[in-house]
């Protein structure tokens, strides 16, 4: 359909647009402790009354809604449960080269955590592969998920 015969498709205007909001959120005690742990190079999970370990920790048991108990440190390595290859990373994504989003079940945890795996290509990825955290240098860590730069295949770091 074409309503202005004098106007070609190429006359349609285009322009770059940017929308940006920066929120500052209060973390609450549990996420706050988790982020503080990351800054210290530790990954913490929350223990539920049933004895499961939820990573990242939540304030309440995601199944029973009961308040979680103490925070415990879990392993820095684990198993990739599922993954998705990001062939064309967007600006501000964790890595500036193709990478995998992955759900990583850390040793000692009962829930998987979303993070990224730095791998040569999708052929280097598989569900069940073991990965280990690669941290930013201690001085650059601020208490943020990106304090873990990425995960890499175990033995590859």
């Amino acid at each position: 359909m074409f309503y202005f015969p004098a106007m070609a498709e190429s006359d349609v205007l285009r322009a770059p647009h940017v929308i940006e909001y920066t929120y500052t959120r209060s973390t609450g005690p549990v996420i706050g402790a988790f982020l503080t742990g990351l800054r210290d190079g530790k990954i913490l999970g929350a223990t539920t009354p049933a004895g499961r370990v939820v990573v990242p920790p939540t304030e309440y048991d995601p199944i029973t809604s009961e308040e979680v108990g103490e925070l415990v440190e879990v392993g820095q390595s684990g198993v990739v449960r599922t993954w998705s290859w990001a062939a064309h990373p967007l600006k501000d994504q964790p890595l500036d080269r193709p990478f995998a989003w992955a759900l990583v079940l850390l040793d000692g945890a009962d829930t998987a955590m979303l993070h990224v795996v730095d791998a040569a290509g999708p052929e280097a990825m598989s569900s069940g592969m073991r990965v280990t955290a690669r941290w930013r240098p201690a001085g650059e860590r601020i208490g943020h998920m990106k304090d873990i730069e990425c995960f890499v295949a175990e033995g590859a770091s």
Partner: peptide
Amino acid sequence: VTMLETPIKIEYEF
């Protein structure tokens, strides 16, 4: 850590 900055940004061509 008690606060977290969460920038949300979208760049697109209109």
